[in-house]
């Protein structure tokens, strides 16, 4: 299947560290697929030969608790430690625990927001905001739980860090065998996000 390549110019104009590393912080509530989205993007970048680091944190609750993840992608060995204080980009799946992250996004950072559920104000002058009705799009695709895959598709294209092929491979590597029946739907959701980001 013929697929478009990544856009050459990433949407984020935030300052990049001298190492050339690009950071992504994701936030949401348990059950939204935040950890899975981080894995899909990170596995995709790994499959494409990048250097990648992921560190996730989540509360004890499977559903409803705070869940965050940090991903770092680079062409060089990663200098960044697992916990970072600033980021080049962010994915906001939900507003509930997003406040601490708001200060960490560097000026002009790429911010993807799930407008279907996000109920807070975003400073469009400070960030490069990309509004994605991810949960609505996922619902249209047949399953609201695909929202994180839609977001991953948008992120891959807007960031210029992972191609759609890479994201699909990353998703295949991330989905456990007992969820293999969801691979097709995940792929459709990734593609829908990628198209939306055109």
């Amino acid at each position: 299947m013929e697929r478009p390549v990544s856009s050459a110019e990433p949407a984020s104009q935030a300052e990049t560290m001298s190492s050339g590393e690009r950071e992504l912080m994701l936030t949401g509530i348990g059950g939204q697929g935040v950890q899975l989205a981080a894995q899909v993007i990170a596995q995709g970048a790994t499959a494409e030969g990048k250097e990648v680091l992921v560190f996730g944190s989540y509360g004890g609750m499977m559903r409803g608790g705070n869940t965050d993840s940090t991903v770092v992608i680079s062409d060089q060995p990663i200098e960044a430690p697992p916990v970072l204080s600033t980021t080049w980009s962010a994915v906001l799946m939900h507003h509930q625990y997003w406040a601490p992250l708001s200060e960490r996004i560097r000026d002009n950072g790429l911010v993807l927001v799930n407008t279907s559920v996000f109920e807070d104000e975003l400073d469009a002058h400070r960030y490069q905001v990309v509004e994605v009705p991810a949960t609505d799009m996922a619902t249209d695709l047949g399953n609201p739980l695909l929202a994180a895959m839609v977001m991953s598709g948008v992120y891959g294209r807007k960031s210029g860090l992972v191609s759609l092929d890479g994201l699909v491979e990353g998703m295949r590597r991330s989905v456990p065998p007992y969820r293999s029946q969801l691979i097709e739907a995940n792929e459709a959701a990734l593609a829908a996000g990628w198209e939306m980001a055109a």
Partner: peptide, 9 residues
Amino acid sequence: YYLAHTYQA
């Protein structure tokens, strides 16, 4: 903890 639980390529 950081070493045990960080993912890297």
